[in-house]
Every structure is written in structure tokens, then in C-alpha cells.
């Protein structure tokens, strides 16, 4: 199981306020699938409007990266810039 941390806003929207959820996944693609299954809409929202940060590195298009129990995983809005 990997631990995925959500912002409090995202949590209110999809997980009844739970900011840390656990899912079974070996990579981001599986993680997004599992999140969608457990919390309908969350996986889609991540793919469309969010980034994932793994161990401090923000990934703009997360998909194939591997994750494990020790990974620090955050879901956050996409970041652009001027």
C-alpha cells in the first residue's frame, strides 16, 4: 500500500476530508486508477488538473513513475508560470 496525501481542499471534495489515503499501487498509473475506484472523480481530476509530487519532485505529467511504501506522495494543483 502507498500513502497518498491530498490538499485539504481536494480532500473535502473527494474523500470526506480524509487528507491521507492508502491504495495498492506500484506506479502512478495504478495509483490513479485505484484512487478513481475508491473515490470516484479523484483519479480523473488528478489527470486533468493536478500534478503529483513524489519525494519532493513535482511531476507535471505523472504516469509511469514507480511508487512504494516509502514514497512521499502529494497531489497538488498544476503549476505553470509567467
Amino acid at each position: 500500500m502507498v500513502k497518498v496525501v491530498l490538499t485539504s481542499g481536494t480532500a473535502q471534495q473527494f474523500t470526506d476530508g480524509q487528507t491521507a489515503v492508502h491504495v495498492a499501487a506500484n506506479n502512478v498509473r495504478q495509483m490513479i486508477q485505484a484512487l478513481e475506484a475508491g473515490f470516484p472523480g479523484l483519479g480523473t481530476a488528478i489527470q486533468q488538473t493536478m500534478s503529483v509530487a513524489i519525494d519532493g519532485v513535482i511531476l507535471p505529467d505523472p504516469y509511469l513513475e514507480t511508487v512504494n511504501e516509502d514514497s512521499e506522495i502529494f497531489v497538488l494543483p498544476k503549476i505553470g508560470g509567467g
Binding site: 496525501v5 490538499t7 509530487a53 519525494d55 519532493g56 519532485v57 513535482i58 512521499e72 502529494f74 497538488l76
Partner: peptide, 16 residues
């Protein structure tokens, strides 16, 4: 109060 290596930022990630 400065953020340092290892500080957890308010938006989630831990800084390198």
C-alpha cells in the same frame, strides 16, 4: 523561521 533542506512546505513536498 527559514525553510531549510528537509522542511515540509505548506503545499506538501519536503524540500531538498
Amino acid at each position: 523561521n527559514a525553510a531549510l533542506e528537509g522542511t515540509k512546505a505548506a503545499y506538501g513536498v519536503t524540500f531538498g
